[in-house]
């Protein structure tokens, strides 16, 4: 598969959303459900991504070091750690545990 196709098609689509806002009248935002859907949609998709990124290997569910990394992230976010600390710590804990064979 030529990966330029999804890259460019998705780019054109996301830009169209941005551009449309500058060319259509403001009436859209008056609909009460509009903003709610716009707010909840990213939450649903991103938590779906978390599930897949933490547990999936193709169509199999795999329990490995990623769960440890994601858990570290949650703990640090509860303590209001900045983004870079969260991501770096998750990688570090997962990598060290793998190195010593604590998890795969």
């Amino acid at each position: 598969m030529n990966l330029w196709i999804p890259v460019l098609v998705a780019t054109a689509g996301t830009y169209a959303f941005k551009l449309a806002g500058y060319f259509v009248p403001d009436r859209f935002t008056q609909h009460p459900h509009f903003n709610q859907v716009a707010r909840l949609l990213p939450i649903g998709l991103l938590t779906g991504l978390i599930a897949v990124q933490t547990f999936a290997d193709g169509q199999a569910i795999v329990l490995d070091g990623r769960i440890i990394g994601a858990s570290v992230a949650v703990l640090l976010l509860m303590r209001r750690a900045p983004f870079i600390v969260v991501v770096f710590s998750a990688a570090l804990v997962t990598a060290v545990g793998r190195h010593f064979g604590v998890w795969i």
Binding site: L46, I50, T54, G69, A73, A91, T94, A95
Partner: peptide, 19 residues
């Protein structure tokens, strides 16, 4: 080896957390 796969999962958690 560098735990990058876990960093990706952690990144998504951090991205959605404030929401």
């Amino acid at each position: 080896v560098f735990g990058l796969d876990a960093a990706i999962a952690a990144g998504f958690v951090a991205l959605v957390w404030p929401q």
